[in-house]
């Protein structure tokens, strides 16, 4: 599983590179090569590294380990078909990682990035409503049982389309340069990442790569069912490209507007969940 882990990390970084390239091409820029993010990670790993004088040392370094660790765990859960709740629990806890990254250094930019990341925690709530809807349909939240259900009843993509939309919005809010990526907005320099340079940043890139793979793969597993590996890879690339289109043509929202929109989506999803609850369960 170690080899898969490293491959997943590299593939995630490649997807992020594709994301940047597609956005650039839509905006008529040449853009970086698609392997740029992998080069980034490699480059940062060779940089001189220390801990800033004002930082809270143990937290500053420890949070990098936590970041990589939680997504390694999420990868394991996904590969073994564990509970969807765990994956999305880890996904929500990624907020804390961003928050700790931002606050541990003492830098004002990092702090604002961290505070924004906390504000936007509301964006994760549609996720839980859609998870609940999936649970209502399939009667389980184990990935293996969900895919088994789909093998019988057809993909959830058509059965639970509003949940797909909500989940897609959640994915969008995690992609860089999107309308909801207020934590990485450029007026914050690099947001929560500002002070994590060198090896720490490389660790964060590893985490980002894993995160992208796990999230996109989970999305496909949940809504399209178990696919062959090649189709999985193609599906993830297509998903990335569609996300890039959404990111490229939309401006970034102001922080509280972004939260409000996501809360409204949550409200809509709650209504939908209510309808499913009364309809599916007699």
């Amino acid at each position: 599983m170690i080899a898969e882990l490293v491959l997943a990390m590299l593939f995630g970084l490649l997807l992020l590179g594709i994301h940047r390239k597609v956005i650039a091409r839509i905006q008529r820029r040449p853009g970086p090569p698609v392997w740029q993010e992998i080069l980034h990670a490699a480059k940062f790993s060779f940089k001189t590294t220390w801990v800033p004088a004002t930082a809270s040392g143990a937290l500053f370094a420890g949070i990098v380990l936590v970041a990589v660790g939680i997504w390694t765990a999420a990868f394991f859960v996904m590969m073994t078909g564990g509970s969807l709740l765990i994956i999305f629990g880890i996904y929500m806890l990624h907020k804390i990682v961003e928050h700790a990254f931002g606050l541990s250094s003492g830098s004002p930019y990092g702090k604002f990035g961290g505070v924004r990341s906390v504000i936007s925690a509301a964006s994760e709530i549609p996720l839980f409503v859609s998870v609940a809807v999936i649970g209502l349909f399939t009667g389980s939240l184990e990935l293996t049982e969900i895919t088994a259900w789909e093998a019988v009843h057809g993909p959830l993509f058509f059965t639970a389309f509003p949940a797909v939309v909500a989940m897609y919005l959640v994915l969008l809010s995690k992609m860089p340069f999107g309308p909801f990526s207020i934590v990485e907005s450029k007026e914050l320099v690099s947001g929560y990442k500002t002070e994590h340079f060198g090896a720490w940043r490389a660790g964060l890139e590893v985490c980002n790569g894993l995160k992208t793979t796990v999230l996109l793969a989970t999305f496909l597993l949940v809504f399209a069912g178990q696919l062959p590996v090649l189709w999985m890879v193609i599906g993830m690339i297509l998903l990335t490209v569609s996300l890039s289109f959404a990111c490229a043509v939309t401006p970034m929202l102001s922080p509280f507007d972004s939260v409000t929109i996501q809360s409204l989506v949550t409200a809509l999803m709650l209504v939908y969940a209510g309808i499913v609850f009364t309809g599916v369960l007699p």
Binding site: S45, A61, T72, S107
Partner: peptide, 23 residues
């Protein structure tokens, strides 16, 4: 895995700079 990855990066090029204040 995280310990190995981050420690490997640190081992490549660690602590050659002096502590600095944030940007």
């Amino acid at each position: 895995f995280p310990a190995a990855v981050v420690a490997l990066f640190l081992w490549w090029m660690a602590d050659e700079g002096k502590e600095d204040i944030p940007f």
